[in-house]
């Protein structure tokens, strides 16, 4: 009996190091951060318990509400534009026989660049004096008179575009990997039946890569919430909060405003969102949805 128990425990011995590290690095700070939601700590001195005050303040905070709205737009943007482009790109690439590796590298390249590099490239390209705007004006095209990053109406989408430009190559690679797993004979049968390219995609490729597709949707929904670096570098959430997102606002409150308690409350809201998303996916799986 004891022998059997010890044998069953074997995998846990291997897991102990990672569990300990996870506990110290992730679990304890997360629990502490959750506790800080109920305080007015400035990151230095005394910690005072203030109950739910931070949450009451959050729900009256116009910037927080704007940030939530922008995160929602951001998520929808990433669930549509990069996914559509990546699906199309991956599907077309599967038909390319020569230099395919080269094209894959080209698409993936922005993903391996540091975000600061990507941001600086686009900051210069959008620059109203030396960027694409003045260049296109030489040909009579008035597209970027002002940088889209500096206008309220376009800043969020401009930042989203730059982030998507670096991100979609990653999606291409995971989609194309999934597409290569699809049984060739299905396409051959469809070919014999006279299926068009769209029909092949619609009835063979897409259903067969659905688990990968759903995985990409899940990670986009989760990753869209802590979106930070591109916003921080390109606009800082401006102009006039037009590109403010939750993670940037959290950083601002914690490290500029010295309002760590309030920042923790924002973090808690972000955690609740991610928890809900994961729970929904979990429930759908239990209901035998093929995701």
């Amino acid at each position: 009996m004891i022998k059997l128990f010890l044998k069953n425990m074997t995998p846990w011995y291997f897991l102990i190091p990672i569990i300990v590290i996870h506990f110290i690095v992730i679990a304890i700070p997360s629990i502490l951060s959750l506790a800080l939601c109920f305080t007015d700590w400035n990151g230095f001195g005394k910690i005072n318990f203030i109950g739910l005050d931070n949450f009451y303040e959050l729900f009256n905070d116009r910037v927080f509400k704007l940030a939530v709205w922008h995160n929602l737009i951001w998520t929808i943007f990433f669930l549509t534009v990069p996914i559509s482009v990546a699906l199309l790109g991956a599907f077309l690439l599967t038909g390319v026989k020569r230099f395919q590796l080269f094209y894959r590298f080209i698409f993936f390249f922005p993903f391996i660049l540091a975000s600061i590099v990507n941001c600086l490239i686009w900051k210069y390209l959008f620059h109203p004096k030396h960027g694409l705007g003045p260049f296109l004006e030489n040909f009579g095209i008035s597209l970027f008179t002002n940088s889209p990053l500096t206008q309220k109406e376009t800043s969020l989408f401009a930042v989203g575009f730059v982030d998507a430009w670096h991100f979609w190559g990653f999606l291409v690679v995971i989609y194309i990997t999934a597409m290569y797993q699809v049984d060739e004979t299905l396409y051959e049968a469809a070919e014999i039946e006279g299926a068009t390219k769209w029909q092949k995609f619609r009835f063979i490729t897409f259903p067969m890569i659905r688990p990968t597709f759903v995985f990409s949707v899940l990670i986009i929904m989760i990753w869209s919430i802590p979106a930070f670096d591109y916003v921080y570098i390109l606009t800082g959430g401006g102009p006039a909060y037009s590109s403010e997102v939750l993670a940037n606002y959290l950083h601002f409150q914690a490290f500029r405003n010295m309002n760590v308690g309030y920042a923790s409350a924002i973090g808690a809201m972000m955690f609740i969102y991610v928890f809900i998303v994961i729970t929904i996916f979990g429930i759908l799986r239990r209901l035998d949805w093929e995701i």
């Binding site: 620059h127 109203p128 500096t150």
Partner: peptide, 11 residues
């Protein structure tokens, strides 16, 4: 205003 937002130290 837009140029002011777009101009950095070097600019």
């Amino acid at each position: 205003l837009e140029n002011y937002y777009a101009t950095d130290w070097d600019g």
